[in-house]
Design a protein around this nucleic acid. Structure first.
Lengths: 341, 341
DNA sequence: TTGAAAGCGCTAACAA
DNA sequence: TTGTTAGCGCTTTCAA
């Protein structure tokens, strides 16, 4: 089993390997191979459990039907979710996924991309962690199609599918303002990362439009629970305690929640909180957390679609898409009475 | 770029492809190739950005350094966590991971295994969803090494690395009993699945040892939030309300928590709850959930270790390991006063 | 309607 | 110390 090749089948049926190949690839009609021949070959193939060698096939056809997926950390519900969508979607298109965890490290990333190319993947979907698109652009130009997801670069020709983070930051902030909040602090993640920058931009713009730009407070340095915890501690012990906190990721959120609870403040009576990233568990926190939900499903599906089309047409894609996120309103934000202002 | 082959380098340097191959594979010493030759070849390889074709290499060596990973649902924090460990661990051993989502469907599973074999993976790590090991055993015998993780079969020769679910079920129940609980309900997942059966067995044994076997109540049918919700609803509206509920997965837990809150009961004052599966968020529920934490890290590392050794030795492994889980005690279980009993 | 044969890029046995 | 050559299993052109 599994050691059968076209040659063995050829020997046993008496037909040439060309004929075997054609039949087994569904090209019998095209070559007008007789029904008897087809039957004989198919029977033998099934009988001996023939399993094609895709390595050999790939070597000759220069197509592997594999797509490479690079993720900064598979062990992050948000990325796991995206990976899941990509894997399943790719499968429906006849592609197998080769997945790599770059561990949020650009050296790994470059090496991993080369490794995938070595394995002759037909295309690459990547959540980039490099700050500079140069490497990926070079690869894309000379080798194989690449689609960025979740993160993109300032000025790049590479196709991408990402959340409209600006929109998300804006809407979350408007939501708070609409409920009477004016002192809204924002705890951010890695400052230079594109999603972070965009979320902050949205936050600031919402404040500006409501003449609250002077109240803008952007704190924090990375997407960690600890960062959320520490910054919130500082906020709650500072001179001007905000009425609402906008955390730019679910990890930051958790840290913030912990700090708030420790301090004895109640959510949302004493302090409102709104966050980025969706997660089932957020519905079970007490109170359930109002948050900006990213369109992971759409991102995954579109990325695969763009990539496979690009593979089929044998050209580099140029579609750049931002998908608006959705605000999920729960109970972590209170309406501020005029008095309290 | 990336269209370079040994032949092109051979032509440009004037050395034979064998020599190029040897140098580029670090066999220069072994073949006593002159330093100059080595330098010349390496320079040219770097200059033209030579990227080896692993398809061709795999075809000749019959080794791909790819391991196949089959997961029932990547979009499940628990499995995502295991996948993450496997991917990273495999990488440290020089293996790339090809991942497939079987969607908890045995037809998919079989097809996916064959597909991976087609791609000539060197070995397979799988969370099986089939109830019958026959297929995997046949594959293992004739083709490539397989290691089961998280789930195993009653009587199988296949190597596996799993949580000691019996132990987990037992300890959780003993923990409850130790705090005075006697009416402990258990909401299970898929009844026939091995982890579930073992957890229930542990639960029953703990009760038996404390002469509480008559109180055993095992309800539920699958690992869904809804199942947890519905069964809890029934429990709370039934004639004999338990003082504690043991949910056999984090999904079931969430459903139970929802039902309990809706009914106005308080955790843990009115009803205690203990669960299976670990997750960061469980620390942020109110109260934080006491749970049995599975040794995902150890499982992933060991599975890769067993598999790669088995690949290296070119034999099917036979290591079968159960790793004890850890009880994480939080605040969702109360001590029952004697009176309340 | 079927077959022969070249070639994909690489390794390794054999030769020199 | 280096080279020649025969495959690995498959597709595909050309021929019949």
């Amino acid at each position: 089993m599994a050691n059968e090749t076209l040659v063995t089948i050829s020997q046993r049926t008496g037909f040439s390997i060309s004929t075997i190949s054609r039949v087994l690839n569904g090209q019998a009609e095209k070559y007008r191979i007789s029904a008897t021949t087809v039957r004989l070959i198919e029977e033998e193939a099934k009988r001996c459990n023939y399993i094609p060698n895709l390595l050999a096939k790939g070597l000759t056809t220069r197509r592997t039907n594999i797509i490479g997926l690079l993720i900064p950390s598979v062990d992050n519900p948000y990325f796991a979710n995206i990976a899941s969508v990509v894997i399943c979607q790719a499968k429906t298109q006849g592609f197998t996924t080769m997945i790599v965890d770059t561990m949020e490290n650009e050296k790994n990333e470059q090496q991993d991309v080369l490794s995938l190319i070595s394995r002759k993947v037909d295309g690459i979907i990547i959540v980039p962690c490099d700050r500079d698109p140069a490497f990926l652009e070079r690869i894309s130009k000379h080798n194989i199609p690449i689609v960025l997801i979740d993160r993109y670069f300032d000025a790049t020709s590479l196709p991408y599918v990402c959340t409209d983070n600006y929109q998300g930051g804006y809407e979350a902030t408007i939501h708070l303002i609409g409920l009477g909040h004016e002192r809204i602090a924002c705890i951010q993640g890695v400052p230079y990362s594109m999603p972070n920058k965009e979320r902050v931009r949205g936050y600031r713009e919402a404040l500006r439009q409501n003449n609250l730009e002077e109240n803008a407070r952007v704190l924090g340095t990375d997407f960690s629970v600890q960062n959320g915890y520490l910054e919130t501690k500082l906020l709650l012990n500072g001179p001007s305690i905000p009425t609402a906190i906008f955390t730019l990721s679910n990890t930051i959120l958790l840290g913030a929640v912990k700090a708030i609870r420790e301090s004895g403040f109640r959510i949302p009576q004493d302090i409102s909180i709104i966050s980025f990233d969706n997660n089932t568990y957020l519905d079970y926190l007490d109170p359930a957390i109002t948050r900006v939900s990213q369109p992971t499903e759409e991102i995954g599906i579109l990325a695969v679609k763009i990539l496979t089309e690009s593979i089929a047409d044998n050209k580099t894609g140029d579609t750049q898409i931002l998908i608006p996120p959705k605000l999920i309103v729960c109970n972590s934000v209170s309406r501020l009475a005029v008095l309290e202002k």
